[in-house]
């Protein structure tokens, strides 16, 4: 009888993704998706209650309309107008990723939110503060009760809920995907761009996710105002100096500027950087590659109402 009554709260939701996608790396057998936890995570994602002065939410730097990046801002913003040292990355297809942040410092999606919550230049709070603030809210207590069967809010539950929502951010319905599903076709220029992309870019930006999610030094000189050496700061190994996580090239139109420090505003600048790195491309070929890259814009994802702002009732 209880089972029937909770019919609308769907447990064991399967993450929707098309056949041309590989299996996710996230272990859904161990931690299945659950609609009540996803909704709770979504409410938390948009709530500035996670920051010290109630001013910054996750969505402040990861806006749904920017494929969950921060368009037109080279570096991330925080409380008291603080400016960070890296470009806020777009958030999608996280279920296929094992390491997080530009330097891979975070080893599991559950643990990722701890970094911005605690960073003095981002949310400036702590998971303890967040837990005690949430425990003082009857509305949140009810949501946690519904999602986890317990009213007492713990750090683990806050993080698990955020994970659930973020896992549902799947971008898999761009024109490229429709072509792969046989529902659309490339123009001649797009197709030429696709061939050039496969020849020159696909090693790092592997389709269909358009990243191998490995770390690489793409030849950018260090910005001496930031002195960010990337993965080297995590592993302590000099071979990792200036290595950063390879981003997906999906949704580029929504998520400029580009690179770990947001130094390039346009795709043309990005391609010019790579031709300087000895990838031979003519001006026409660059135009073709850009035409192909634009087929990776996923408007269905960016304007999906299920991912939008949702306020606690």
């Amino acid at each position: 009888m209880i089972g029937l009554m909770s019919f609308t709260d769907i447990k064991d939701i399967r993450l929707p993704y098309p056949d041309h996608f590989p299996n996710p790396t996230f272990d859904f057998q161990k931690t299945p998706l659950d609609s009540t936890k996803i909704l709770l995570g979504r409410i938390l994602f948009y709530d500035p209650i996670l920051s010290k002065d109630n001013s910054i939410s996750c969505a402040s730097c990861h806006s749904p309309y920017n494929a969950f990046a921060h368009t037109d801002h080279d570096l991330s913003h925080g409380i008291f107008d603080a400016i960070g040292t890296r470009n806020a990355p777009a958030l999608f297809n996280l279920a296929w990723q094992k390491e997080f942040m530009w330097d891979g410092a975070i080893n599991h999606i559950d643990m990722q939110a701890l970094a911005p919550i605690s960073h003095p230049g981002e949310m400036g709070s702590s998971i303890n503060e967040v837990v005690s603030t949430l425990n003082a809210s009857n509305a949140y207590k009810e949501l946690f009760q519904k999602a986890f069967g317990e009213k007492t809010i713990t750090g683990a539950k806050v993080l698990k809920a955020l994970t659930q929502f973020q896992l549902t951010l799947v971008s898999a319905n761009a024109k490229y995907d429709k072509v792969k599903m046989g529902k659309d076709s490339f123009t001649l220029q797009e197709n030429n761009g696709y061939l050039l992309f496969k020849k020159n870019c696909n090693t790092c930006h592997q389709e269909p996710l358009f990243s191998s999610y490995q770390f690489a030094n793409n030849g950018l000189p260090v910005d001496t105002t930031l002195n960010d050496f990337g993965r080297w700061q995590v592993t302590g190994q000099t071979k990792d100096s200036l290595h950063f996580k390879i981003p997906s090239v999906r949704n580029l139109s929504y998520s400029y500027p580009y690179m770990h420090d947001g130094r390039f505003k346009t795709l043309r600048e990005v391609l010019n950087h790579y031709t300087e790195q000895k990838i031979p491309l003519t001006s026409n070929e660059k135009a073709d590659i850009i035409a192909f890259l634009l087929t990776l814009n996923d408007a269905d994802f960016v304007f999906d109402k299920n991912n939008k702002y949702y306020k606690i009732k």
Partner: peptide, 24 residues
């Protein structure tokens, strides 16, 4: 256990025994 996500109880990061800037 280090790479398996978040846990309740003694392993909950609220105890101040988890590094936020770099997993561990």
């Amino acid at each position: 256990t280090h790479s398996a996500g978040v846990f309740e109880g003694d392993l909950d990061p609220i105890h101040g025994m988890y590094w936020s800037w770099q997993s561990g």
